[in-house]
Structures are given as C-alpha cells and as structure tokens.
Amino acid sequence: MPELPEVEVVRRGLDAHVTGRRVTAVEVLNLRAVRRHEPGPVDFADRLAGRSIVAAGRRGKYLWLELDDSEAIIAHLGMSGQMLVQPEDAVDEKHLRVRLRFDDGGPELRFVDQRTFGGLALADLVEVDGASLPAPVAHIARDPMDPAFDPDAAVAALRRKRTGVKRALLDQTLVSGVGNIYADESLWRTKLHWARPTDKLTRPQAAALLSAAPTS
C-alpha cells in the first residue's frame, strides 16, 4: 500500500498536471471505485462536469483535488490504486476504473486500481485547525511532512497511549501517513520491539521513533 512519501509524489504530479483545468466529462467504469460516494456514480459524474480543479492536497495517505466551490474529489489509493495522467488516445489500462476529461483537450486523468480497495468520492471541505480538509479526512492527524506538524505534541500523544508501539504508529489519529512498511522500518532503525508498550517509552525513544519514519 502506498505510504506517506509515495502519496506525496502522486500529489505533486497531480498538482503539476491537473490543477487549473476544468472537467468536462467523467466516466465511471467500475461502480466499486466510487462506492464511498453515497449518492452514486451518476451523481458523481454529473456534479464534476464543469468544475475546475484549483489545488491538489494530501494528509497522510489521503489525496484530494480541491474544486472551485468548497468541495473536493477525495481519493484513497488502497493497495493498488494509481492516478495516471494519460493522453486521450492512450490505450485504456486493463484496470481503468474512472476517467476524467478536461476542456483543454489535454491529457485525461485516470483512476486505475487492480484490486479496487481504493476509490474516489466527492466531499465537502471543512476547516480544522487552520487547514481546509475534506470532511472524511478531518479526524486524521497531521503527518511529519506537514509544515504545521508538532513533533513534541506527537511524542507526548504517543507516550500517553496504552498499546503496543507498532499499533500506535499505525493509528492515523496519532500521526498519519505511516503504514506497515515504514512502521517496521522505524522500529528497526530505533531497535525497538513492535509490542513494547508506548507508555514505557522514554521521551528520547519516542522522538527517535517518530523521526525515523521515512518522509521523503
């Protein structure tokens, strides 16, 4: 599953290639890919037509494309999801699930997902601690790549938990963006056992653990 650094690479690519463009048509090729959009695939496509993408955002492993009227296309890549920018005449990928076309006739945006654990949905943007986030992401903590991330507060929150240290690292309400791969990497770098109780960590150990999480 893509984790924080990989998802940030995707966000940067989307920001470079789709920000400032207006959607003209949306094609949903697999209903499961928009299952989180409760009004359904027709509503998803109809509401996106004519809308402009103004920014690409991310928190943890969630991506979103901010639209021009306080909504966003929220994307979770799941295990195998990809957001691909492809020429309109490019052959469709085998696992193409959703296609967005733009009014400039340039490359289209494709959501490709072999296992379809990920998906797209429209969501309202809400203000949380000075940040504009899609409502389904509002509960997720800041990640270490966020300029407003507070390492001291994260260390204190980690040490207050009463659970195993790996379980805590995977808790997206504590620190977001870390999955199994980077949790294991952080534990290996700091030589801490995955089941060590978080409330037994010293402050330096907790700080070292969080700083060891790969972020680039």
Results as ranks from 00 to 15, higher is better:
163 T>W: 06
167 R>K: 13
85 V>N: 07
2 P>L: 09
62 Y>Q: 06
43 D>K: 14
94 K>Y: 01
4 L>F: 07
56 A>N: 06
126 V>T: 11
177 G>I: 13
199 D>T: 09
12 R>G: 12
83 M>Y: 03
101 R>F: 03
14 L>W: 02
213 A>H: 12
137 V>T: 03
24 T>K: 11
35 R>A: 15
155 V>I: 15
147 P>Q: 08
81 G>H: 01
202 T>N: 13
125 L>D: 08
131 A>V: 02
136 P>A: 04
139 H>F: 06
162 R>F: 04
45 A>Y: 09
158 L>W: 00
57 G>F: 10
208 A>T: 08
143 D>L: 09
138 A>I: 01
213 A>M: 13
107 P>H: 08
2 P>V: 10
140 I>M: 14
72 A>E: 13
13 G>Y: 08
107 P>Y: 04
147 P>Y: 05
125 L>N: 07
104 D>N: 12
211 S>Q: 15
149 F>S: 01
189 R>Q: 14
150 D>P: 10
161 K>H: 10
197 P>F: 14
160 R>V: 02
93 E>F: 09
148 A>K: 15
32 R>T: 14
49 A>Q: 12
6 E>V: 05
205 Q>E: 15
158 L>Y: 00
102 F>C: 03
178 V>A: 14
93 E>M: 05
163 T>N: 02
78 G>W: 07
207 A>P: 07
202 T>P: 13
186 S>F: 14
149 F>C: 03
80 S>M: 00
179 G>S: 09
151 P>F: 08
210 L>C: 12
87 P>L: 06
98 V>G: 05
76 H>K: 03
180 N>M: 04
18 V>A: 08
18 V>E: 07
38 E>Q: 15
81 G>Y: 02
51 R>V: 03
122 L>G: 09
191 K>Q: 13
90 A>E: 09
179 G>F: 11
169 L>S: 06
42 V>G: 08
155 V>Q: 07
139 H>C: 00
149 F>Q: 02
94 K>W: 00
109 L>H: 02
55 A>H: 08
97 R>G: 00
142 R>A: 06
58 R>V: 04
28 V>K: 14
208 A>D: 14
134 P>N: 01
40 G>P: 14
198 T>Q: 10
191 K>P: 00
149 F>E: 00
38 E>H: 15
23 V>Y: 12
13 G>A: 10
167 R>Y: 08
71 E>N: 04
22 R>K: 10
6 E>I: 07
122 L>S: 10
77 L>R: 04
146 D>I: 02
128 V>P: 00
28 V>N: 10
20 G>Y: 10
32 R>C: 00
23 V>E: 10
25 A>P: 10
107 P>F: 07
186 S>N: 08
131 A>S: 01
198 T>H: 10
202 T>V: 11
86 Q>A: 11
58 R>K: 04
10 V>G: 04
117 F>R: 03
151 P>C: 04
195 A>N: 15
201 L>D: 11
60 G>V: 02
147 P>C: 05
167 R>L: 08
33 A>L: 08
